[in-house]
Design a protein around this nucleic acid. Structure first.
Lengths: 181, 181
DNA sequence: ATCTAAAACACTTTCGAAAGTTTGGCAACC
DNA sequence: GGTTGCCAAACTTTCGAAAGTGTTTTAGAT
């Protein structure tokens, strides 16, 4: 494989914030920091809370169905890789992303959805780099169910609270393990 | 000039939403639409309102100084290109962008600032494509001054209202002329 | 005449090498 | 001994051409 397609790929990583580029100095992995993670979580909560609220206002029954469907598939997948328990299950990761995207998909703003996708990609890097499969005795499954139920019940405040604490807890756990290293 | 650097540049345009790419179908200018413009303005008002509020809470005297400085330079530049009155004055465009960026620069979220920059770049395309230098008898100069004064007076609601209506009016005017064509 | 299949065309992408840039080390000089 | 300037190595970027892909045209068959 030649430099051109690699370069092309790197340019896309830069676009999503996973890499950085400096002219005549090539590409680098984007640096990680506790403050960046905090910014990431805060911004993500703000964006997705708005988008979830709007989706609850706009979404129809088809949307509710898609949420239940996403949740169902997610709950039946193991979080760990069946072949190696210390690795991630890429299927679960994909479905997890799908679930969170479905929740906010009816917000009516393509731009906001794009921002949320970027934020999700960047957040996932922190989550995956820490190699934490299950943090602090939490039950991610219950959290996802609570978010979905509150959303379908059209209880925006409860749904937003559930979503926010879902992200906050993950972030707190990551920050704790990060500091310990 | 060869294809490689052109391709590189196009990749960056895609990243900021000014162009689109499809595999084996090359690059295209991103399409324009009234609904996209509406999304752009709504999202921009939401993002920048938050960022302005936070900047008003966090900003120090240095920041106030930078706002006044930006405004001063902007007010003394002609909006039209001195060499051809029907063209834009690139200096004014740069300073205009600076001014709006300075207002929100102390919001404390690098990610949000990045989003605002993207939104500004995309909005500018609509504004510039319409070739409208002064719309609907408005006085952009006064609007900028009002935003700056409310901001420095630390009157967040007034500043947000001024900023929002500044963007809304531009959008409304663009949408009107867009439909007429 | 209409539909199918092959070939020509225009375009996008990828390649390997050349050109350009920065970094580190060595030698000469202050 | 410390500093400056130059050279060499490693790297990044750019180039022109080759390879690959999608679309249109044309020839052949039904």
């Amino acid at each position: 494989m030649s430099v051109s397609p690699v370069r092309e790929a790197l340019a896309r990583l830069v676009a999503t914030g996973l890499a950085t580029a400096e002219h005549n100095h090539g590409y680098r992995v984007a640096p990680l920091s506790a403050s960046d993670l905090q910014d990431l979580v805060d911004t993500r909560i703000r964006e997705e809370s708005w988008a979830l609220k709007r989706s609850i206002e706009n979404g129809d029954e088809m949307w509710e169905g898609r949420i239940l469907s996403s949740l169902h598939v997610l709950e039946r997948l193991p979080r760990e890789n069946p072949e190696d328990q210390s690795l991630y299950n890429e299927q679960w990761e994909t479905r997890h992303s799908d679930f969170h995207n479905t929740l906010i998909s009816e917000c009516g703003s393509k731009l906001t959805l794009g921002f949320c996708e970027t934020l999700r990609d960047q957040s996932d890097r922190y989550r995956r780099l820490s190699l934490v499969l299950e943090g602090g005795g939490r039950n991610a499954r219950n959290e996802h169910r609570e978010i979905a139920e509150a959303t379908i019940a059209r209880d925006a405040p409860r749904a937003i609270e559930a979503l926010s604490s879902h992200y906050s807890m993950t972030a707190r756990y990551l920050l704790e393990t990060y500091v310990e290293e």
